[in-house]
Design a protein around this nucleic acid. Structure first.
Length: 574
DNA sequence: GCCGTTTTCGGCCCGACTGTTTTCAGTCG
């Protein structure tokens, strides 16, 4: 059982206990452990073997025993018994907006509803409205929520949400009386997926701004509209909400709206120790007087903290680090001066090498690796060995034309075949300037097999980088079941770099794994995987993942001076 | 169920909005 699978068990326990009506703090305790496990930078099995389970945040004696039972036997008696008391399928209902644990319990106990289909049928038959605390409007909201859920599915990739948010922000910023408009929520924290689009507006006159927002043509439903907060749904099922606060309170409001919830709780606890109560409006002293903050820096300063970049605000140690003045200098998009994974017409890219190099140069890159696919990945039209010399000639010609404004490398994204062999023989790899190795197929191999395959690639002396290590694709393809600890240990030993692939459908390594790699001192690389000029800009999302992983520029090859990048490649003997 | 600059018990952040209610529960972030 891996970290995520274990976390799922505890999330299920939390949901079931909540529906059962258990005291809320017990539920929160289980939920916190699920979150801790999901964000753990080590394999929980290692901690378990070393008897260090209680070092995991939120894990005490009782939960440590449950983890022990789950990892030893694969089952948990406590959970099995719980499942006989509350049907597990009831947790489906919690996905529906406006349905929480109390209503789920109500529907189950009064109407025998145990899943989404049952809820929808009952709502359509008008059976919900007569329940205590329910009415026609509540029933209609639940039906609307069910429809939105069906349309939208789950969370959406940040690559889709970000452009939509920019469009909404541009709209808001043009409205009269709007002083500022910023992204908030998981969007601003740059999580790889977001549930809805949160936006914060500064204005002294919120009424007309709210009206303009909720009155947009693409809004199909207004879910809430108040003085400080409104929430709407778009035709595709996506939801967005805005808060509007006066400019002099923008700082506290932005901290609040950005979250995460756990980060906010941490800040509020800290405020209380200083005799202050922190809300989205202000700090309040015990005598009722307020401290207003028009920007975030003032909020953190009042708490005796360094300003914390939004990407770190997950209650993963950032508040403690800020208190000690030890926040890392996070990498930025501007730090990147190379892109080490891109594709040209030689495989599945859209442009010639010269066109790609010009596009890279326009974006300020000084170094570009052309890393086309290899033949076994048939759909990409991989470069045959006999064509590599002609590709080299094209690179030389492009280099000639562009002079020293940008340096172009001949590389390859070499397929790691199902049996662990690479798609080019060593003598061919030896002639390339840079070699990335990656898996695209046979991702469902058993853990041992797929891990061995990856390790074999890392041990090949010509391989410089493992690209998108797990092979995951949003939203539907799970990554390979890799033993990442083993992969990390081997990468460290052989000095092979691991990629944070910036394509929003990949974002692989993810933030949690990238943080673990960083802690282990493994080199990282952030690449766009560009197949067309616009794709170069996707590096932005890769940087976001790196920032969420506390990554500094020193750890990222692409942020090094060109000569250092080239020297690293040369010294690897590739 | 966890946890400790109020420490081994008694707390555990703060508020907006809605709907069904005549003062509040439920949900959400």
């Amino acid at each position: 059982m891996n970290n995520r699978e274990l976390a799922d068990q505890f999330k299920l326990i939390a949901d079931l206990l909540e529906i059962k009506g258990e005291v809320v703090y017990k539920v929160l305790a289980y939920r916190k452990v699920a979150d801790s496990l999901n964000n753990l930078t080590q394999d929980v099995n290692e901690l378990w073997k070393e008897g260090r389970l209680e070092e995991i945040p939120g894990v005490g004696k009782a939960i440590a025993e449950k983890i022990d039972e789950l990892l030893s036997t694969g089952k948990l008696e406590f959970l099995e018994r719980l499942k006989t008391e509350v049907p597990p399928s009831l947790t489906e209902l919690l996905q529906v907006p406006d349905v929480g644990p109390r209503k789920a319990a109500l529907f189950w106990k009064e109407l025998g509803i145990t899943d989404l289909a049952g809820l929808e049928a009952a709502a359509r038959e008008g059976k919900l409205r007569s329940l205590p605390g329910m009415g026609e409007k509540s029933e209609a909201r639940i039906l609307a929520g069910l429809e939105a859920l069906a349309r939208r599915g789950d969370r959406i990739p940040i690559g889709e949400a970000w452009p939509l948010a920019q469009e909404l922000l541009a709209f808001l910023r043009k409205l009269p009386g709007v002083v500022a408009a910023e992204p908030a929520g998981s969007l601003r924290r740059m999580r790889s997926t977001v549930g809805d689009i949160d936006l914060l507006v500064a204005s002294k006159n919120p009424g007309p701004v709210m009206a303009a927002f909720t009155g947009r043509k693409d809004v199909v439903r207004v879910l809430a509209s108040g003085e400080t907060k409104s929430s709407v749904e778009f035709a595709n099922g996506l939801r967005s909400q805005i808060w509007i606060h006066p400019p002099e309170r923008f700082g506290t409001a932005l901290v609040y709206a950005t979250g995460s919830k756990d980060h906010n709780v941490r800040l509020r606890e800290l405020a209380l120790t200083m005799g202050l109560s922190l809300s989205e409006h202000s700090f309040q002293r015990k005598d009722g007087s307020e401290i207003l903050c028009d920007n975030e820096e003032k909020v953190y300063e009042t708490l005796g903290l360094q300003w914390i970049p939004p990407e770190l605000r997950e209650d993963h140690g950032e508040v403690q680090a800020a208190k000690a003045g030890k926040l890392p200098r996070l990498i930025t998009h501007d730090d990147l001066i190379s892109d080490l994974q891109t594709h040209s017409k030689w495989s599945d890219g859209k442009l010639s090498i010269l066109e790609m190099a010009k596009a890279a140069r326009e974006r300020g890159f000084k170094l570009l690796a052309i890393t086309d696919h290899t033949p076994s990945l048939g759909v990409t039209g991989g470069v045959k060995i006999e064509d590599l010399a002609r590709q080299r000639a094209e690179i030389d010609a492009a280099q000639e034309e562009l002079g020293d404004s940008i340096r172009i490398l001949q590389g390859a994204e070499v397929e790691i075949r199902a049996d662990g062999r690479l798609d080019y023989p060593d003598e061919v790899l030896a002639k390339l300037d840079i070699v990335l190795a990656s898996v695209h197929t046979s991702l469902r191999q058993p853990r041992d097999q797929v891990t061995a395959r990856m390790i074999a690639a890392i041990r090949n002396p010509h391989v410089d980088i493992i690209a998108h290590p797990t092979g995951r694709l949003f939203p539907n393809r799970e990554g390979a079941d890799l033993d990442l600890e083993a992969v990390f240990s081997e990468a460290k030993k052989h000095g092979v770099a691991l990629e944070i692939n910036a394509h929003p459908a990949r974002l692989d390594l993810d933030d949690t794994n990238a943080r673990r790699a960083m802690e282990l001192g493994i080199l990282l690389t952030i690449n766009s995987d560009a197949h067309s000029p616009a794709d170069f800009d996707l590096a932005f999302f890769g940087v976001a993942i790196a920032r969420r992983a506390w990554v500094t520029p020193e750890a990222v090859i692409n942020a090094w001076p060109v000569e250092k990048q080239l020297a690293w490649l040369k010294n690897r003997g590739g």
